[in-house]
Amino acid sequence: MNLTLRIWRQNGPDAKGRLVAYRVTDVSPDMSFLEVLDMLNERLTMEGAEPVAFDHDCREGICGACGVVINGVAHGPEKATTTCQLHMRHFRDGDTIDVEPWRARAFPVVKDLVVDRGALDRVIEAGGYVSAPTGSAPDAHALPVPKADADAAFEAATCIGCGACVAACPNGSAMLFTAAKVTHLGRLPQGQPERQSRVLDMVAAHDDAGFGGCTNTGECTAVCPKGIPLETIGQLNRDYLQASRRPARSRS
């Protein structure tokens, strides 16, 4: 296959970026999208040009490091697939493909397709945990957890923190990410004592980071590689309203 990639090139956070077209030839349909970028970078290096910077690590769809917007869709055209698991057999010979970074104020561009997603860590830091210092735990069977709750918690906990939800959201909101953690911990008995402060503090951190508000359009869940459902946001809203009924539950 021969393709034209129009890739966003930006030297640094404050530099001006633009789309630059590159022709790539001899692309195998079995290549992953990132392997095409690898191949392009090998060529650019030998031509004396700067290779394209992009984040990636595990290349098996679980670390959440990779992610680019391909033809306007976060992680590209395949459902429930990260960019590293997207293979070229889903494209056609001669295609022109636009490749852009996640775009959000809370995710400033570091270089080219690499963005800083530290804001997601700050949302977790605000309360996305159970306070269980090492050594304090009772026996694991001391507290049975209904299977339905455990399964629902697991579904939400599969979030890989890639940020595709933010990239796709017309409002630049990270509510699906925030809601996934609120739901994961809120569905388990271990998460109950901090349930109210967690949701208040995480939403506050979310808003402080400069993410937009959710309008339930569902663009996030359409691109989520783990298929985190939109219902988790309903759960977050419910927890938030409950926690807000009685004021001053926040830790901060």
Partner: peptide, 22 residues
């Protein structure tokens, strides 16, 4: 043995049986 206790206390959603046990 302690690791499992610790992880469960943190909210790690291990697979469970219908009785609610791990």
């Amino acid at each position: 043995v302690e690791i499992i206790d610790q992880c469960v206390a943190q909210g790690v959603p291990f697979a469970r049986e219908y009785g609610g046990l791990l």
